[in-house]
Structures are given as C-alpha cells and as structure tokens.
Design a protein around this nucleic acid. Structure first.
Lengths: 144, 144
DNA sequence: GTCTTAAATGCAACCCGGTTGCGGCTTATA
DNA sequence: TATAAGCCGCAACCGGGTTGCATTTAAGAC
C-alpha cells in the first residue's frame, strides 16, 4: 500500500486525489500485468464499476494511465511509467497468450513504427503479438 | 457479382458452398476496407446476423478470411489474399483514423515482427497504427 | 425422383463489457 | 456553516457478440 507514491503521482499530474483514485492507481501500479475494468472490479470489491470506469477515463486524459487493446474484447490499462506524458516512443510490445489468456508487458521492447504513406499522421500504436507464453508452452510440451 | 470467383475460392478452401456464403465472401472481396459484422449486416439486409457470424467463424477456420482488431471494439474481417493460408508474413499494417473512424488496409506494408524473449511462440500479429488519415487531415487543415 | 441425414439458417433470447442519468454524498472554498 | 463543484453508487441501458432451438436446405443413398 504505497499510498504516498500514488498520491504524489496524482498531484503531479493535476488530478484531484480521492480514496477511490488511490485504490485504483495503487492496484494498477502493483500489478505486473495490464488490468481490465473487470480485473479492477474484482480486486476492489467495494468500489462500483462505474466509478472505476470514470476514474480510468480521467486517468487516461491526464496521462496517469494508458490503455491497450489486446484483442480480447476488453480494454486493459496500465500506469504510465515516466514522469512526462507517454509518447509513441514509450509504447511497448504486448504479448497475449492464447492458452492462459494473460497479457504480458514486454517493457523493454518498444513497439515498432513502420513508415506510412504520405499524409498519415500517427498518434499511437497498438502492437500485440499473440501466441503461447513460455509457461503454457512448457505445460503442453508433452503433446506438441 | 463475380460469383464464380467466390465459389472457386470456397471450393478450393474446402468450404461448402451456399448462397449466403457467396454473398458474405462477395461483399468482403469487393470491399476495399475490412468489414465488421455490423457492416456486413447492413450490406446484406436479407441475411440474419447470426448466420453471418457463424459464416465468418467457418471462413476464419478455413483461412478464407482473417480477422483484425482495430481497437474500435468491433472485430473486422477481410478476405485472405494468397492461394495458400495466411501466414504471419502476410499480415499487413492497418491504420485507424480517429476522425472518420475508418480502418485502412496498408497491404504493401507488412506488419513488423519484433524479437521476443526466449520461449514465446508467435501465432499472429495485430499491428494497428492510429491517427488521422490524409483525407481528414486535409479537411481539418485550416484549424490545426 | 424420393428418402434420410447432416449441415445451414432464422429467430429470439441471452451475455457481458462498456456507458450513462440521476440522486445523494464529499470536498473545496468562502 | 453555507454554497457550489465535483465525485460516487445504483440501476438501467446499449451494442457487439454468442447460443439454443426449430425450421429449412443441401448431399448422398436408394
């Protein structure tokens, strides 16, 4: 419960501090994986999902968190890392395991940026690799 | 209505030919953009969405079409190109315009593949670049 | 052609993530 | 303490996707 850290981050980004916001940001910062609305709902039993939803919207607008779409149909969120706003260069690769349905952050692997035809203006990148993660691969190794 | 072409493709992929399947595949092959279930529903008024849904599932399994997730919340489909099955190398880049909400196929731009840590087995790639398309950029040029 | 069977289809209902309207509560400021 | 702005919980809603089931269609046997 590093509340201090959450509070500092919120103040630094110009977001009003409330108990719920501390809880939501705390959960995201402690998690090693991006979390969906449902994940947060489960972890924060006492908080209504609409509150979490609105909180995430505010966080996103103020660059406290950013969202990624791993193709599972539910958007996932993770706390932004650097002090400054998340830029394209900060976007990292994600890996979605089709067996255990977990999404991994590969934070050291920057999402690649291709050259686009003239006229396309890039705002963000969504780069998801799908397949089988090491753990699941080991588990099913016997049969493949 | 190049029915012949659709029928050939279905037979070649080992999919039973029905009138609905010809319609669905025809619509996808004629479209310059990937289509969602809702898009197909609108274009094929006479066909029930559950039929389209199941048809797409069968098409996907038999590599007649593949799906992409452009982060809009609705999966889009496009007809596979080559005679053989779609491979990772065939996956191309998509661009989603945040203004007009259209998804563009950049067929000449192969989706990049990063090097993953050991143990990750890749099946597919989802690479979406988001921003503003040339047409919308021109339209809003006056104010930016 | 007719029969039989499996597959395909339409309909209606459902599921679930996401979203919104609104009344009540909390916080900030005077 | 009074007031206003913003936050929160509840409940209802929305839309894409999915499923169960009865009906229709197509493929093969006779």
């Amino acid at each position: 419960m590093e509340n201090r850290k959450c509070i500092d981050r919120l103040e630094q980004k110009g977001v009003r501090v409330t108990s719920i916001r501390i809880l939501v940001l705390g959960a995201l910062m402690e998690s090693s994986r991006p979390m969906s609305l449902a994940d947060l709902e489960k972890e924060l039993e006492t908080v209504d999902k609409s509150s979490i939803f609105r909180t995430l919207g505010i966080f996103e607008k103020h660059h406290v968190v950013h969202s990624i779409d791993d193709g599972t149909g539910s958007i996932k969120y993770e706390a932004c890392e650097g002090k400054d706003n998340c830029t394209i260069a900060d976007m990292h690769t994600h890996f979605y395991c089709e067996i255990c349905h977990r999404t991994f952050c590969l934070k050291d692997i920057t999402a690649p940026l291709v050259n686009l035809p003239d006229g396309f203006q890039v705002h963000s990148i969504n780069y998801i690799v799908k397949g089988v993660c090491p753990a699941c691969r080991r588990t099913v190794a016997g049969r493949s």
